[in-house]
Nucleic acid binder design. Sequence first.
DNA 1: CTACGAGTTCAAGCCGACTTGAGGTCAAGC
DNA 2: GCTTGACCTCAAGTCGGCTTGAACTCGTAG
Lengths: 153, 153
Amino acid sequence: MKDLDIVEVSRHTGVPASTLRYYEEKGLIASIGRRGLKRLFDPAVLERLALISLGRASGFALAEIAEMLTPEGLPRMDRARLEAKAAELDRTIPRLTAMREGLRHAAKCPAERPMDCPTFRRAVRLAGAGRFEAAPIAPFKAEEVGSGPRARH
Amino acid sequence: MKDLDIVEVSRHTGVPASTLRYYEEKGLIASIGRRGLKRLFDPAVLERLALISLGRASGFALAEIAEMLTPEGLPRMDRARLEAKAAELDRTIPRLTAMREGLRHAAKCPAERPMDCPTFRRAVRLAGAGRFEAAPIAPFKAEEVGSGPRARH
DNA sequence: CTACGAGTTCAAGCCGACTTGAGGTCAAGC
DNA sequence: GCTTGACCTCAAGTCGGCTTGAACTCGTAG
């Protein structure tokens, strides 16, 4: 396939040209030359942008994505780091799922206050947000989880 | 249970006091009085913060969360709006799942370039990232309360 | 009764992820 | 060969989500 100029990339991907420039500046993508002033991109940039989009949609920061992407493909990170990212998603996905169920349920639940509804409570608990419940028995404190409450600096 | 002052709420939830004040200012939570200068909160605020945390972790903006939360519970939004949110998550969850699988696979895949690997390509395709039609959602990393270091600037 | 320290207010700052605006430049069409 | 218009650069602006700093105010310990 022929090289694409920035406008074509933008059209194919829906990513605004300004964003493409920004991404280039940040090192997430690279143009392969110019035609006049216009940047030219290798068609592979489309795949790369797909990856970036996927990463963004998954809640990763651009800087993190940049770290994961080598110039030519994906994994620059070591096994442990990739696994850590996956584990992060392991925690996030059930939350999202619970949130979705909670929302869906809330749309039809007769209970005045959702927190009075067992189904809803279950969803919240599932989400791991139950950490905050006015727990009769103090299970664990925030500082015991991970590396503690927000690092104040 | 006794009312909690801001420090206690912060300790129980891991949410910094500054954030609690900010949330109050934004109308996401409400203090129920003062003891001297100190805000006092009804213990129910813990549940509310759990909900907020859940929402944030699910990629909702504070303003959206504020719209969903009535002073005393959850659903102020109409059915359609709640359903729309749920549908949004329907689209997001498979992406996250694919991302997770992609990451996990990338950690062990022998292929030089992940894009040469059918498993990986499948994950990306599953994520729907091949098509950009919609702007990426998931604005934020949504590091939730208590579950880790809060990468500070 | 005074001092202290923890919590308060308000304004300003900061980061991430972009977008916008002013002014420059190039290749293409007339 | 000059105009035009699309793209360029660079700086600044925007928005969400907080954090930080300075100056202030209480309740409590001594």
